[in-house]
């Protein structure tokens, strides 16, 4: 047997456990879910398909397809808002803050990133509630006569999400910014660019990979999250993950929950296809 073949066997042998695990506990469950989505519920028992009844229901029942729209709207708002807020933050930390304070500033800017997801949403419920800190301050200062309801509206969900994803994007954009040679900005300035032109024409385009990586992660994590809308958004309008969990709890409607999950999966895949070009963009 040739040396190359021995090496290949060895390599494949080392990779095998990981592949088997992923196959058994990721691919197989996913296939099971797709198969389940092709069945339907009669009474409390699942009748195996294949039929497309579940998908027909998802795209004709307003209470279901509205969930898709709600999720997409929230996710789009959060992604755009987070990028707009995070870019200047990352840029200020990377270029304006003196070098010795930089790591500390970054650590502070993403500190709550490391706390429990459930606790973070709960904290925002504390802050945004009718008796919470913000309403107290606003009514106390006489800016508002009456507390305004934010909690249990979409605004609360968006604020909670944006809080988390600003931190995530600050991390990805910051790491992109510090990898850029300082000579890019110097060269542009040397050739007569104003400070604003340096940012707009050179630095901003060069951070697109970091922005797109962060935006894609934001999209995936945001559209599939159940906790934040459940704790902060209430039950007035349901996002897709809330709908999925509702099917499991109420009637044990596994086919519908699976069908909605497949739809969720398709949306994430489409987002990936849209971003793939940027996620792989080579840096010169």
């Amino acid at each position: 047997m040739s040396i190359e073949r021995t090496e290949k066997r060895l390599g494949a042998g080392l990779a095998a456990p990981a592949l088997l695990w992923t196959g058994a506990f990721f691919v197989l469950p996913f296939a099971a879910m797709v198969w389940m989505s092709l069945g339907h519920l009669e009474g409390r028992t699942v009748v195996p398909g294949p039929d497309l009844g579940t998908y027909a229901r998802i795209f004709t029942d307003p209470s279901l397809y509205k969930g898709i729209r709600v999720s997409l709207e929230i996710t789009a708002t959060v992604t755009v808002l987070s990028v707009l807020l995070a870019w200047p933050l990352a840029w200020i930390i990377a270029t304006r803050v003196p070098a010795r304070w930089r790591r500390l500033a970054l650590l502070l800017a993403v500190l709550p990133f490391w706390t429990s997801y459930v606790v973070r949403s709960y904290s925002w419920a504390l802050v945004l509630g009718e008796k919470g800190v913000i309403m107290n301050a606003l009514t106390g200062l006489g800016i508002l006569a009456e507390p305004v309801q934010i909690l249990a509206t979409r605004a609360a969900t968006v604020i909670g999400f944006t809080h988390f994803f600003v931190m995530l994007l600050t991390l990805t954009i910051y790491s992109n910014l510090v990898q850029l040679s300082p000579n890019y900005a110097r060269a542009a300035e040397d050739l007569g660019a104003s400070r604003w032109q340096v940012i707009r024409l050179v630095i901003l385009p060069l951070t697109l990979p970091g922005v797109m990586t962060g935006a894609f992660l934001t999209f995936v994590l945001c559209i599939g999250d159940y906790i934040t809308p459940q704790i902060l958004g209430g039950n007035n309008e349901l996002s897709l993950p809330q709908l999925i969990m509702l099917q499991l709890g109420r009637r044990g409607d596994y086919p519908l929950a699976s069908g909605l999950s497949v739809v969720l999966m398709v949306m994430v895949t489409l987002a990936y296809a849209a971003c793939a070009r940027w996620l792989k963009m080579e840096r010169v």
């Binding site: 990721f26 469950p29 996913f30 879910m33 994590l221 599939g224 999925i244 999950s261 969720l264």
Partner: peptide, 9 residues
């Protein structure tokens, strides 16, 4: 892939 999908599967 969303954790929800992995968990449900």
């Amino acid at each position: 892939v969303s954790y929800l999908i992995i968990g449900l599967g």
